[in-house]
């Protein structure tokens, strides 16, 4: 049985009403109901960070937020990072530093890194590693990701 509800929220700066199931997580709603598939599912229990989004400015794992909780909230996904002026420095730094290989963790890392730089514009390497420890990457060994984040912080 499905049990649908209408949720009103601001997604990537745009007010949006969408139909979701009572059982949907924010991640499921973003991907399967709204069509914003940039946010990825890696584990569905908060242990990989691939589904990272900003909710009211705060970094959360969207797999551990119920869609019903998003009523009235402001959500930013990877699709909402670039501006009218183009890619933000983080996105540009990820490209220049080759901070991605397969790219599946990249949306989560970008969103988490955005939250980091919003909170701490000049992180140390250790602070960046700590902040991003909830985002798993299996391809890069993190070296180039950390370099990209520190580079973007300087930009």
């Amino acid at each position: 049985m499905t049990d649908r509800m209408i949720v009103s929220a601001t997604i990537n700066g745009e007010p949006l009403e969408f139909l979701a199931d009572q059982r949907d997580s924010l991640l499921e709603a973003l991907r399967e109901r709204i069509g914003l598939t940039g946010t990825k599912e890696g584990c569905n229990d908060g242990n990989c960070g691939a589904c990272s989004v900003l909710m009211d400015g705060r970094l959360v794992n969207s797999c551990l937020v119920m869609a019903a909780e998003v009523e009235g909230a402001d959500v930013t996904t990877v699709e909402g990072l670039a501006t009218e002026d183009g890619l933000i420095p983080l996105q540009q730094a990820f490209l220049e530093e080759a901070a991605l290989q397969c790219g599946i963790c990249t949306p989560g890392f970008l969103v988490a890194s955005k939250a980091l730089l919003d909170a701490n514009p000049n992180p140390t390497e250790y602070e960046a590693r700590y902040w991003l420890a909830g985002n798993l990457c299996r391809c890069t060994g993190y070296d180039k990701i950390i370099r990209a984040v520190l580079k973007a912080a300087e930009a």
């Binding site: 991907r31 399967e32 069509g35 914003l36 598939t37 940039g38 946010t39 990825k40 599912e41 996904t77 990877v78 699709e79 990072l81 670039a82 890619l87 996105q91 990820f94 490209l95 220049e96 080759a98 991605l100 790219g103 599946i104 990249t106 949306p107 970008l110």
Partner: peptide
């Protein structure tokens, strides 16, 4: 810079689970 880079930093790149 890799040719598929922009798609992968903007969430546009389509992975299998993104199929709809």
């Amino acid at each position: 810079i890799r040719h598929d880079g922009t798609d992968k930093v903007t969430g546009r790149a389509g992975y299998g689970a993104d199929y709809q």
